[in-house]
Amino acid sequence: MSENSDDENRPWYYERLQDLHHDGWNITSIEDFLSENEDLASERIVYTDFVVELAQELLERTGYLGESVDSRSLELSRTWEEELRDPMNAERVLEEYRQWAREWRPWELELHRGEGLWIAAGYEEEFASILSRFDFLDASSLPSAKIISPILHDPENYDEIIGSLSTIEQDEKRQRDAVSNAAKLLSEAGFDVDGVEKMPIIDALDWISQLHELHDLHEDLRLLILEQIAIFDPGLSDHHEKRRVALIEGASTQDLRNFRIQMDAIADNLHQRLARLNDLLNEWR
């Protein structure tokens, strides 16, 4: 009897709510929205279906936000995924995503705008490939990607899109190759360059530049020890050369400059001692 009573008290859209729940959606807000005004429940169930469909679409669009364009990408993707489990958040998340994507992922907005045209033209695979290639671009290519983005909605621009995208990818490859070659030379000189090739290009170039500066300081120090100290005291020279090598890993530019001051002082002292000795020898003659 109580079960029949419960069935009678359930709203007509109860089964629809249960279907949404079983599909993994958080239905609390939807249930509140529908029960808020029973007279408008029919119209509101239409809106509910709309936001559920929108939430599903946004989960797919925001599941991966790019390789390294914005450092917040992973955090945003996770946040939106959690919020979209409640479909009533879908329209707000859509606006937030659009605002973010205009700055950081404009190609997706344009491709999405023209998705129907791409599908109608039979270019579904090409559409997915282009989106993936843009998402994989390095952050340094964002300005170039923004320039191309306005033509992405139209599959008739396919050849131009592929040509421009390939040019960007080739530019990135040249920069990556430069980083790789520089890293190899620095590694041979004793520097730890592990992970540099996985860094965003700008970060990698900055790090390589810093390591090159350290390398130049080390080379100056090596020559100073070899040419200004070893000629007087090979044992002392070996000691300080070992100290220099130990500084390759982890020492800052300031550490090396302080070490250089010490080496200059030692070299000056040795030269002064030699000068005094020469003066004494000249006096004895």
Rank of each mutant, 00 (worst) to 15 (best):
D32L: 03
D32N: 10
F33C: 00
F33D: 00
F33E: 01
L34R: 02
L34I: 04
L34C: 04
S35W: 05
S35E: 11
E36V: 00
E38H: 02
E38T: 10
D39W: 07
D39R: 07
D39T: 09
D39C: 01
L40Y: 09
A41K: 09
A41L: 04
A41T: 13
S42A: 15
E43C: 03
E43T: 09
E43M: 10
R44E: 08
R44L: 07
R44C: 07
I45T: 15
I45L: 10
I45A: 08
V46Y: 02
Y47E: 06
Y47K: 06
Y47T: 09
Y47I: 08
T48I: 09
T48L: 06
T48A: 11
T48Q: 03
D49V: 09
D49M: 06
F50H: 15
F50M: 12
V51K: 03
V51P: 01
V51D: 01
V52T: 14
V52Q: 08
V52P: 09
V52F: 07
E53Q: 15
E53P: 00
E53D: 12
E53M: 13
E53I: 09
A55W: 08
A55C: 12
Q56S: 12
Q56D: 14
Q56C: 06
Q56Y: 06
E57C: 06
L58P: 04
L58Q: 04
L58T: 07
L58W: 04
L58F: 01
L58K: 07
L59S: 04
L59D: 08
E60Y: 04
E60T: 13
R61A: 15
T62G: 04
T62A: 14
G63D: 05
G63H: 01
Y64S: 13
Y64T: 11
Y64F: 14
L65Q: 11
G66C: 06
G66M: 10
E67D: 05
E67H: 15
E67W: 14
S68Q: 07
S68P: 01
S68C: 15
S68V: 02
V69M: 13
D70C: 14
D70V: 04
D70M: 04
D70K: 11
S71D: 07
S71L: 03
R72L: 04
S73Q: 13
S73I: 08
S73A: 15
L74W: 02
L74P: 00
L74A: 11
E75T: 12
L76A: 13
L76H: 11
L76Q: 14
L76F: 15
S77R: 05
R78V: 02
T79V: 08
W80F: 10
E81A: 14
E81V: 00
E81S: 14
E82L: 09
E82P: 01
L84S: 05
L84W: 10
L84D: 15
L84Y: 13
L84H: 05
L84R: 12
R85P: 02
R85M: 10
P87T: 11
P87G: 10
P87M: 12
P87Y: 05
M88V: 00
M88R: 00
M88T: 01
N89C: 01
A90E: 04
E91W: 05
R92Q: 14
R92I: 14
R92M: 07
V93I: 15
V93H: 04
V93D: 02
L94M: 15
